[in-house]
């Protein structure tokens, strides 16, 4: 299994480190030719405007959009979730736009409102998952094909899946809990 990690900007090294711990072959992706052949792709946290501009500059955007439409499994965390969404309610970021979700960026406020909290994510089992939310987005609306995997206590949606696309508003790559990545690898392998 070979997983690409988009390395335009952001916390890509953290995802690569987790995949190495899981003994998965990884490729940092900065240019279109690095996309083939991959079994899955991770779009990390970072600044979605910055990542979007960099993806547009060497036509990485269209290549990834096409691969996603053809069934490539993709995990997006935070900025990655924003980039997967078809709709972003309050900005001019051009997303890849393949998931039927509407996202609100910086939904909790500025950095002083960033927080940690334990999350219940039923698909990962009973043990709570450490949720790290940094200037995080939220899922505002979804299509019926989208499954919400995690909610905050007030009901806010913070993780979603649609087919082979998986997205979280929080940062599993900043924790030592590997279950979210394992769940994605199960999707890649066709076991989920």
């Amino acid at each position: 299994m070979r997983i690409g990690v988009l390395a335009s900007q952001g916390a890509f090294a953290e995802h690569i480190a987790i995949l190495h711990r899981l003994e998965v072959d990884t490729v940092p992706v900065r240019l279109p030719h690095q996309l083939a052949p991959l079994d899955g792709l991770i779009i990390p946290g970072g600044e979605s405007t910055s990542i979007s501009r960099l993806m547009l500059s060497y036509d990485l955007m269209n290549e990834i959009r096409n691969l996603a439409k053809n069934g490539l499994p993709i995990l997006g965390t935070c900025a990655g979730m924003i980039l997967l969404a078809k709709e972003i309610s309050d900005s001019d970021v051009e997303p890849i736009g393949v998931m039927d979700i509407t996202i609100r960026r910086n939904a909790f406020g500025r950095q002083k409102d960033s927080f940690e909290t334990d999350l219940s994510i039923p698909v990962l089992g009973e043990k709570p998952f450490p949720g790290v939310f940094i200037r995080a987005p939220v899922v505002e609306q979804t299509d019926s094909e989208v499954e919400i995997l995690a909610r905050l206590a007030d009901g806010t949606s913070v993780a979603a899946r649609q087919g082979k696309l998986l997205a979280s508003a929080f940062h599993p790559e900043l924790t030592n809990d590997l279950r979210f990545h394992c769940y994605f690898l199960d999707i890649v392998a066709g076991d989920q």
Binding site: A7, S8, Q9, G10, A11, F12, A13, E14, G45, G46, E47, S50, C78, A79, Q111, S114, V132, I134, R135, H171, L174
Partner: peptide
């Protein structure tokens, strides 16, 4: 973590 999100930028 916020500093980590700025990396490569």
């Amino acid at each position: 973590g916020l500093a980590q999100m700025l990396k490569g930028g």
